[in-house]
Amino acid sequence: MDHTSPETSSFVLISSATPPGEEVAPQQLVEALGGENLSPDLRWSGAPEGTRSFAVTCYDPDAPTGSGFWHWVAWDIPAATTSLPLGVARDDASLLQARNDFGNPGYDGPEPPAGPPHRYQFSVHALPVPTLGVSADSPHIAARFAIFSQQLASASFTARYQVME
């Protein structure tokens, strides 16, 4: 399932903790897998003209749910922001974060079942509005609908993780 939007070649997203195409860094994994459950540092540049805020998502399209698994949905990140630090707190007041598919607010890292590798798609979405008008108490589908139906562009990278059988 592809959740991308119009992309501009100058709009890019990178992370020092989890380089694109590499394995998810151990510190991003859930504690049950020996991780620290910290969101990766993210940096972006080249957002399109008209960007008034950003949203960030992390999605596992390989989760055996029939619809993937959402690890992080955050929005209302001010347009002047070009990065998020390692380990964004669940109660960080500089953005709104929905409950993920684990049922927790904010980021929770990979915890796939044993078997084939899973892909984790980290994306930043440029939005033409300063706020989505969606409460953090709303189901993340409400925020995702607002993000994907309005975004000017997105920039993404994919990392992977596998639990061996």
Score class of each variant (00 low, 15 high):
Met1Ser: 10
Asp2Lys: 10
His3Trp: 13
Thr4Gln: 12
Thr4Tyr: 08
Thr4Val: 10
Pro6Val: 11
Glu7Tyr: 00
Ser9Gly: 12
Ser10Leu: 09
Ser10Thr: 14
Ser10Trp: 11
Leu13Cys: 07
Ile14Lys: 14
Ile14Arg: 14
Ser15Thr: 09
Ser15Asn: 08
Ser15Met: 05
Ala17Cys: 09
Thr18Asp: 14
Thr18Gly: 03
Pro20Phe: 04
Pro20Arg: 10
Glu22Thr: 15
Glu22Leu: 07
Val24Gly: 04
Pro26Ile: 09
Gln27Met: 13
Ala32Gln: 13
Leu33Val: 04
Leu33Lys: 00
Leu33Phe: 11
Glu36Ile: 04
Asn37Ser: 06
Asn37Leu: 04
Leu38Cys: 07
Leu38Met: 11
Ser39Asn: 03
Ser39Cys: 01
Pro40Lys: 08
Asp41Gln: 09
Asp41Ala: 14
Leu42Pro: 02
Leu42Asp: 01
Arg43Ser: 15
Ser45Cys: 05
Ser45Gln: 14
Ser45Thr: 14
Gly46Arg: 00
Ala47Gly: 12
Ala47Asp: 07
Ala47Thr: 02
Pro48Asp: 03
Glu49Ala: 15
Gly50Trp: 03
Gly50Asp: 06
Thr51Asn: 00
Arg52Trp: 02
Arg52Gly: 06
Ser53Ala: 12
Phe54Ala: 01
Phe54Ser: 00
Ala55Val: 09
Ala55Gln: 04
Ala55Glu: 03
Val56His: 00
Val56Phe: 05
Thr57Glu: 02
Cys58Thr: 05
Pro61Glu: 02
Asp62Ile: 07
Ala63Asp: 04
Pro64Thr: 11
Pro64Asp: 14
Thr65Glu: 09
Thr65Gln: 06
Gly66Glu: 09
Ser67Lys: 11
Phe69Lys: 05
Trp70His: 10
His71Arg: 04
Trp72Ala: 03
Val73Ile: 12
Val73Leu: 07
Asp76Gln: 06
Asp76Val: 02
Ala80Pro: 02
Ala80Gln: 13
Ala80Leu: 08
Leu84Arg: 01
Gly87Thr: 05
Ala89Gly: 08
Asp92Trp: 06
Ala93Trp: 12
Ser94His: 12
Leu95Lys: 01
Arg99Lys: 15
Asp101Ile: 07
Asp101Tyr: 04
Gly103Thr: 11
Gly103Lys: 06
Gly103Val: 10
Asn104His: 10
Asn104Gln: 13
Pro105Lys: 09
Pro105Val: 13
Pro110His: 07
Glu111Phe: 14
Pro113Tyr: 11
Ala114Arg: 06
Gly115Tyr: 01
Gly115Ser: 01
Pro116Lys: 13
Pro116Phe: 11
Pro116Val: 11
His118Met: 04
Arg119Phe: 01
Arg119Gly: 12
Arg119Glu: 08
Tyr120Arg: 04
Phe122Pro: 00
Val124Ile: 03
Val124Leu: 01
Ala126Asp: 03
Leu127Gly: 00
Leu127Arg: 00
Leu127Asn: 01
Val129Ala: 12
Thr131Ala: 15
Val134Met: 13
Val134Thr: 08
Ala136Gln: 13
Asp137Pro: 01
Ser138Met: 12
Pro139Lys: 10
Pro139Asn: 13
His140Pro: 08
His140Ala: 02
Arg144Cys: 14
Arg144Pro: 00
Phe145Glu: 15
Ile147Cys: 09
Ile147Glu: 05
Phe148Asp: 09
Ser149Met: 09
Gln150Val: 03
Gln151Phe: 05
Gln151Pro: 01
Gln151Leu: 11
Gln151His: 11
Leu152Pro: 02
Ser156Gly: 09
Thr158Glu: 08
Thr158Pro: 04
Ala159Lys: 00
Val163Met: 08
Met164Arg: 14
Met164Cys: 06
Met164Gly: 07
Glu165Ala: 15
